[in-house]
């Protein structure tokens, strides 16, 4: 069942041109001077980056919910996003953040570190629960180290830079960010699609999944690679953007046959659409300074999610 895919593709095709024109100053390509440069060098890379980052977060969220058999799972649970954020924070701390590629490179190394720790654990046990708890420990360790780095920041300027960056944004991104993140995220989504069959089997519980030929280690490797690349690269170029990985699979699930493998691609597309639209709203809102994307998504996401939960509760009671 792939009905949502064409609809989402169509919505993205409509939203992308709109997002290119939208901003504090609406762009009229016919009259604005230098419209081509603004579009090609500022707004298009930002739009593409929003799509790519959102797609990664959406796909990772769908895969995580499938793996944990829990609709409340979120890609942050594996500790990869905090690991990447820790790397980025260190680049500020050490004063490298202003150099080109240094910040995303540090973040990718941080994500890689979290993935390496997860792999060490994956080599030891097959159980979903053990693996997830270990991921949560990595997340809280990275979070603590991040707070430590912030509290020991060399100067107030570095501290405020770190805190602002952590809020997540797509401001002032260029094609180089796109070229860095896009290939990694695409590979990550491909790995998650490969994990689909194992995730489908897990629908029936771990024991039944193994009786269907699911290999727990292979599945863990695919997830470490897939979630690591999608979320790690997303954080590297956009900071922490929450809620996408949690909400999007919820929205998309009723449109599919509810099998984890049928959810990954539509979630990637819906995640792309959500981040693109949220980023566009951030630019349009008449505030003194631009609203940070991470904050905006949480502001939209939290009440929305609460409403969703209450509705689900009413339906099941």
């Amino acid at each position: 069942m792939r009905r949502p895919v064409p609809i989402l593709l169509l919505a993205i095709a409509l939203a992308l041109p709109l997002s290119l024109l939208a901003g504090r100053v609406w762009l009229d390509p016919a009259t604005t001077p230098n419209a081509t440069v603004i579009l090609a060098e500022l707004r298009l890379p930002r739009g593409v980056l929003a799509l790519v980052v959102g797609a990664g977060l959406g796909a990772a969220g769908a895969a995580m919910q499938g793996y944990l058999r829990n609709p409340l799972a979120d890609p942050g649970l594996f500790g990869i996003a905090p690991g990447a954020a820790l790397g980025a924070v260190l680049s500020f701390w050490l004063g490298y953040a202003a150099q080109p590629y240094a910040l995303p490179a540090f973040a990718l190394v941080g994500a890689g570190g979290a993935m390496a720790l997860l792999s060490l654990i994956a080599g030891r046990g097959n159980s979903v629960l053990l693996f997830t708890l270990a991921g949560m420990m990595i997340a809280s360790l990275a979070g603590a180290l991040m707070s430590l780095a912030i509290s020991l920041a060399p100067n107030p300027f570095a501290m405020s830079e770190i805190v602002t960056w952590l809020m997540g944004a797509l401001t002032d991104r260029s094609w180089s960010d796109v070229w860095l993140a896009a290939p990694l995220i695409v590979i990550g989504i491909a790995l998650l699609l490969l994990a689909g069959r194992g995730l489908d089997a897990l629908t029936l519980g771990e024991e039944a999944a193994r009786s269907l030929g699911m290999e727990p280690r292979a599945l863990q490797w695919l997830l470490i690679g897939g979630v690591g690349l999608t979320v790690g690269s997303g954080v590297a170029v956009a900071g922490i953007i929450g809620f996408v990985g949690l909400i999007v699979p919820h929205l998309v699930r009723p449109l599919t046959d509810r099998r984890p493998s049928s959810l990954i691609l539509p979630s990637a597309l819906a995640g792309a659409l959500l981040v693109l639209v949220a980023d566009m709203l951030c630019r349009i809102l008449p505030l003194a300074s631009e609203l940070r994307l991470g904050i905006a998504l949480s502001l939209i996401g939290a009440p929305f999610f609460l409403a969703l939960l209450l509705r689900i509760r009413r339906e099941t009671v």
């Binding site: 897990l202 629908t203 029936l204 519980g205 024991e207 009786s211 699930r253 046959d257 509810r258 984890p260």
Partner: peptide
Amino acid sequence: PQTPEVAWDV
């Protein structure tokens, strides 16, 4: 298995 579970409402 003894207590078959199905995680999603398929």
